[in-house]
Design a protein around this nucleic acid. Sequence first.
DNA 1: GGGTAATAATGAAGCCCTTCACTATGAACC
DNA 2: GGTTCATAGTGAAGGGCTTCATTATTACCC
Lengths: 195, 195
Amino acid sequence: MKPFTMNPDTLNPTSKPMLPRELGAAHELAHDDAGRLYSVRMRELFENLHVDMSAVEALGALKIAGHMLGLLQERWAERHGLTQGRLGVLFRLYRCGDTPLGDLAVDLDYTPRNITGLVDHLERDGLVERVPDSSDRRSIRARLTEAGRGRIEAVWKEGVDHQFEMVEGFSKDDLAQLRHLCLLLVENARKELGK
Amino acid sequence: MKPFTMNPDTLNPTSKPMLPRELGAAHELAHDDAGRLYSVRMRELFENLHVDMSAVEALGALKIAGHMLGLLQERWAERHGLTQGRLGVLFRLYRCGDTPLGDLAVDLDYTPRNITGLVDHLERDGLVERVPDSSDRRSIRARLTEAGRGRIEAVWKEGVDHQFEMVEGFSKDDLAQLRHLCLLLVENARKELGK
DNA sequence: GGGTAATAATGAAGCCCTTCACTATGAACC
DNA sequence: GGTTCATAGTGAAGGGCTTCATTATTACCC
């Protein structure tokens, strides 16, 4: 995918050892004694730091996985003329019906300013329309148009298929465990983020 | 953390049921029968879609966890006057010594254009300098200055501490399993990304 | 030596998202 | 009724990243 242009004979002229690359496109994976995958480069990179690296390795792997997932999602959103943000709004509306813009901001973890822009764009594309909220006349709800519904249904269908391909080789238990560990992390992160 | 401003009495005027929020800041977590965490909202959101949702839930959880991890990392990078990108460059140089800019681009998965900018910035801050490459006079290597070394060492130390807090409650086996599953995902994603 | 390819820099443009400051409208409360 | 707060929209600015086109230098190969 990415051309590898480095001259392999180029040795590091400093005292530092020339270690291979960190995370990124080129990840050689190998299996440890327990048959689990690890990144060869990451392990080399963190060698001799005299700290227990199991946490760093796990979180590093999670970050890479999350990043690649994002790339894939972006790709198939793009294939349907969407972006991740717009896709999120569309899906939210698909599942939850008309929604005040403020709620979208909270739920999708976006700035109100950004939601305005996303909805602007979706409206321009005819996928969403703004409707007044009868119960609160300050509020405006975003509503999926027919075109929007068709679009999100197509994208969703394709997305699910892709996700199934992504988890090829995973048992149900693996998936549940992955979910569990990630959410455990979320729990801890929330404590951290709350200062 | 985020003020919840939605009027709970506001019922959805359309035929759609009023489902709670999707992913984001407000995630109520609960334990399933096996004692594993799941996101209440996500499960409600994906109800009645007549598809097996274990993959979607797991990948969704991973995405959220990755996102929060990114936020935390950004926060402590910022605390040291850095960004994630600059931090990546600095750490790469710290572990691998002087590195041609092109290699940085490949390894860190950034555009060459972006690497130039990152190094520009780090150079302006006195953390990195550009040195000619004696073996290839087209090439330029980025080198950590003394200030840069001090900076990355401080950040690294603090970062490791934070990561330990993040994995509170994880056994070594949990971490290894998380790493394994994420890298399995990376493997699969790579196949996908290779079209 | 000459053509081709690689390395880095630069500028312009654009996307997505953020923050901040400000406006207009309407709800809520006393 | 009037103050205060919540909801949306807007514009300006900026950060980070991308793509694309262009240039200058140097390696590499025949």
